[in-house]
């Protein structure tokens, strides 16, 4: 560790540089403020975007509009990623896992996917008397399963992971402890889904993804689990889809 002001070596436990007297803790506090600014701006931009999307989105939204919405969403994430590109790129290195750990990671989305699909579907039906079929949204287009696969399984796995477990995780880690970082990223990941009932499963799901991001310093495991989880949901929606109801 070196002093950012005089480049002399400094002890990790020092509060001040012994040679020029520069405050190390002041530098840390400035870094935290910068991180906090980015977190708040990122979250407000996401909220404004999601609010607009929810206001314009309805059952008759065209495929072109949906592609435009997804493109803007991806572009916003990439703009924020650009601010922290040097810390995000290394997160795309492949994690080193033992065979047993790989089995655990590959099993996890099957457990979460099936339990969420049947558990939440049941709760939604009992509490709110409603049921959502993601596949049905695309049924009037050619290749509906392919569209559902791209919009629901692939895109969120790529962009939500880099946004929450990449950018947001890195900024929070600059300010606070790893434990709080995992908790907060999971909490905010649950909040942006704008669904009260979903918090019940998205929060623990986010905790798992955040823990894996920290444990293996890679986004790949989160992306794989997120992708397989969403693919299971879409596949079950496809399996249970009944054209008579739509």
């Amino acid at each position: 560790m070196t002093c950012h002001s005089c480049t002399q070596p400094i002890n990790a436990s020092s509060n001040y540089c012994a040679h020029c007297g520069t405050s190390i803790s002041l530098r840390k506090r400035q870094t935290r403020s910068e991180g906090l600014n980015l977190i708040i701006v990122f979250y407000i931009v996401e909220l404004v975007f999601l609010t607009i999307v929810h206001l314009i989105y309805n059952d008759h939204t065209s495929l072109t509009t949906e592609i435009a919405i997804e493109s803007v969403s991806a572009a916003l994430v990439l703009i924020f990623v650009f601010f922290d590109i040097k810390n995000i790129v290394p997160l795309y290195s492949l994690p080193k896992l033992r065979p047993l750990e790989w089995i655990g990671v590959l099993w996890a989305p099957f457990i979460t996917g099936f339990s969420v699909y049947y558990g939440i579907e049941w709760m939604n039906a009992v509490l709110f008397d409603e049921s959502t079929n993601y596949y049905a949204t695309y049924v009037e287009y050619n290749n509906p399963f392919l569209l559902a696969f791209v919009f629901i399984a692939i895109l969120p796995a790529i962009f939500e992971e880099v946004a929450f477990r990449g950018f947001l995780f890195n900024q929070l880690e600059r300010i606070t402890s790893v434990r709080i970082t995992i908790l907060l990223t999971a909490f905010l990941f649950a909040l942006v889904h704008f669904s009260f009932i979903s918090i019940l499963w998205i929060f623990p799901f986010g905790l798992l993804l955040g823990y894996l991001r920290h444990r293996y310093q890679s986004l790949w495991l989160g992306m794989i689990i997120h992708f397989v989880h969403n693919l299971i949901i879409v596949s079950l929606d496809y399996y249970y889809f009944d054209p008579l109801f739509y």
């Binding site: 400094i10 002890n11 020092s14 509060n15 001040y16 540089c17 012994a18 040679h19 020029c20 007297g21 405050s23």
Partner: peptide
Amino acid sequence: LTTETKFCTHCGYPELG
């Protein structure tokens, strides 16, 4: 403090300043 340092590494006081 070590003899050759000007500032205290704990509180930043310029002991030899």
